[in-house]
Design a protein around this nucleic acid. Sequence first.
DNA 1: CTGATTTTTCAGTATTTACTGAAAACCGTG
DNA 2: CACGGTTTTCAGTAAATACTGAAAAATCAG
Lengths: 173, 173
Amino acid sequence: MDTETEKLKQARDEFVAQWGALGTQWGINRTMAQIHALLMTAPESLTTDEVMEELEISRGNAHSNIKELVAWGLIRSVVKKGERREFFEAEKDVWQIFTIVARERKRREIDPALAILNRCAEESEGIATPEGKAFHAQMRSLEDFVSFASKMSDRISLMKHGFALQMAAKLLG
Amino acid sequence: MDTETEKLKQARDEFVAQWGALGTQWGINRTMAQIHALLMTAPESLTTDEVMEELEISRGNAHSNIKELVAWGLIRSVVKKGERREFFEAEKDVWQIFTIVARERKRREIDPALAILNRCAEESEGIATPEGKAFHAQMRSLEDFVSFASKMSDRISLMKHGFALQMAAKLLG
DNA sequence: CTGATTTTTCAGTATTTACTGAAAACCGTG
DNA sequence: CACGGTTTTCAGTAAATACTGAAAAATCAG
């Protein structure tokens, strides 16, 4: 193996390892983030066995995290003619990745928060004591804000990359 | 205790419990989120002992999570004349809460990602093989996007609530 | 239908993260 | 500067989360 290929391998390995560590901070498990990094930087689609070997993880672990990534839409399975096993490749478009992650986070973080706030606001609706009114007002203001953030997130995700960028340029400029 | 006060207590307890559960999804530990919820909806500032009692947690746990919340800026300690112990109260302004959480997430999630991407982009700078070029390009495009997101986040956090809202209204309209 | 290959499941185990409780350090007051 | 109240630390333990490996189920070619 020549020096250049060696250097690339090193850089890629580092990326996979570090991206995995970062995943933890993002509330994504290490392995899932590593597989994602591996596939994002793979020239060709990979099989489960290749993923297992590359990351030195068990079949069960590889399998479940691959499934999870497919469920998210961050990777997809591809069929190769004459091949019985599944191959996987990653979505590489950054805007696409961003919208997928945003959608997933909204589902896990924003939507449940909204549900709680709405319920607590309802439950405290008619309470006439000063404390009751204060609590209700607080729930409503949180609800309003989170609901607003939720709508914004949806709206931005639906944009085309170019349009969002343009929008943002105005905001930054 | 009359019915109204009882109902309020129930609603508030539910909020604290649920917000705690939600915290987990947000990568914040349960107790920290519960203490935050408790203080956000407290009519008066509370002592460590009151937090311990209300949430039925140990002193050590209460202490360290209160400290963490203070470090984030989501709660602050207040001194009461004639009182030796510390009291704590929560930041209640939603925009303020939002910017604090955004800042913290940026620190934990965006900044490290940028560091990794930058490093891997540098390391793969001069590699002339097609794979090397592809890898480098991928790192750069991820870096560009994350760096852009980082700047956006900063910019929005610096806005006044009203201005951000106005901006967003245009976007949503 | 059979046998080989591939995928899926899951009980058991390991690792990571959070919490307890008690002891130590700190701090203001008399 | 000694004492009681208060805060801080941290070793040990509990709980949550992730991973392994082997067995079961599914899939497919002949």
